[in-house]
Design a protein around this nucleic acid. Sequence first.
DNA 1: GCACTGAGCGCG
DNA 2: AAAGCGCGCTCAGTGC
Length: 572
Amino acid sequence: MYLVLATASGNRSADAGPSPAADLLSLDAAGNPSGTRLTVALQNLPDVVRGLEQDRPRWVWQRTQDWYPALLRAGVSVEKCHDLTLCRNILVYSEFTASTGYPRANMALPVEGASDSRPGVPNQDSLFDSQVQQRGPGLEELCADLRAQLAAVRDTGEQAKLSLLLAAESAGTLIAAEMQHTGVPWREDLHEAILQTHLGPRPEGMRRPEQLERLAARLRDLLGVPGLNPDSGQELLRALHRSGVEVKTTRSWELEQLKHPAIEPLLAYKKLSRLFAANGWAWLDQWVAGGRFRPEYVVGGVVSGRWASRGGGALQIPRQIRGAAFADSGYKLIVADAAQLEPRVLAALARDTKMAEAARDKDLYAGIAAQGFGGDRAKAKVALLGAIYGATTGESGRLMPQLTRTYPQAVGYVEDAARAGEKGRIVTTRLGRSCPPPSTAWMAAQRSTTAEEQRRADGAARSRGRFTRNFVVQGSAADWAACWMAELRRRLRAFPSEVPGGAAADGGPAGVPEMVFFLHDEIMVHARDEDVDRVCALLEEAARAATQLLFGQIPIEFPVNITVVQSYADAK
DNA sequence: GCACTGAGCGCG
DNA sequence: AAAGCGCGCTCAGTGC
């Protein structure tokens, strides 16, 4: 059963009435009304939702981000939902729905990307965002959209995959909101200790920290430029050239190749200034509060289906400061990552039995090395990643023929994706997420007449080929990860009932294992010491379930590496 | 003063 | 050794 939740029609104008409200309507599996319309004052909504949740409906709303954060703040969680905006974006582009009327009918509608629609900071003054109260579409509109989406899924030959994708992605939006609500346990004191060790004490005002200032002074001295600002690439490049250091850029890896007294302090400066600017005291002030780091995750923020994040650089937490992510007393951080997810996904997609054999082992690269690279694991890894990314030069490019001989199926799969992309065609992930079509400018350029234009168009075609080549693998890996998370969430929600006294005495969720972080192929759970073993088992169970959902019975393992730690720095 | 781009570097 | 994919963030530099 579906329960559609919309802004009440009475308060969608700019001059919203004094009592903002929401409309509710239940629909049957086909999307037809199966109950009476209900209007609820927003202040009562959490209680109403909690009550209706007993029937285990699938909540349907314009965007999970519109409603769910406030419900979570009010202590209410839901089991499942359908995020209309996210699902519409998938269905509009999916190759599976191309033969239905859905893309054409919905393409023209303003497709609100998950990334452009709302400010990053929720309105804390009221329970729900004022946007929801005043500008949300009405119930009829949402019901019509849901019916159209259900029909589009039904009209394809791939109903099972597509409905799984929509359910998993929608579950992802719930998880994202829940993880933002919970936050990563973050010890400010440990973070500050790391900063102190590397940079010195917190500087006053806008000044550089002690250690950065010392390195800057040394650089000015060594390069003979008294006023040098090492943060300026242009100044730095000029100064290096004057000192006889012939570099094209100031990239660290290029500088590392050279011998000059200034190189070592310069590399040190770059490393430290990065720490200071990106994850220093200002970051701590802005993003960590009450012992939790709460970034915003953007589900569907990447075309391939990966998550993006907004604020705090959640998906780029440098190893340097991971020591500050630290479990509460009596708890552990359970960090699980899917081992070599993308190569395994490729083997499964391509049904490459030879590669599947190599993937029998927990270390896939070692298996590949044994089969075709004389046991050289490093070579095997470079070759396989090169195939997935489309490397043409360097060692990786040179190893391609060797890889192709051993795994014609797998290499053929990504080659086909690349050729399709070069021709301007669409490619699709396992569950039916398709890549965006090329722009009209790209298409026009492919018909260029002059030699110079044609050369550029060929370059653009190869570039798109690398994109589509990678898309099928990265995107299918994202499909797998979405299912993994959704399966884990379902199991974790059942957790308290399995463990006597699992819920806190006050009835709140304290003590229950919580997902607190997700990074493409890695999940972090914060759990009490006594729950660790059970959670580890659930992580592996969920991974097996995800594999079954995507590929059915297949002789390829998707092993999960799990480490149980106090500190994130100790994972891996 | 504000918006934007490119360089550079963090993550997978 | 550091290219081949996908991102976000900060700073310098530029243009209005």
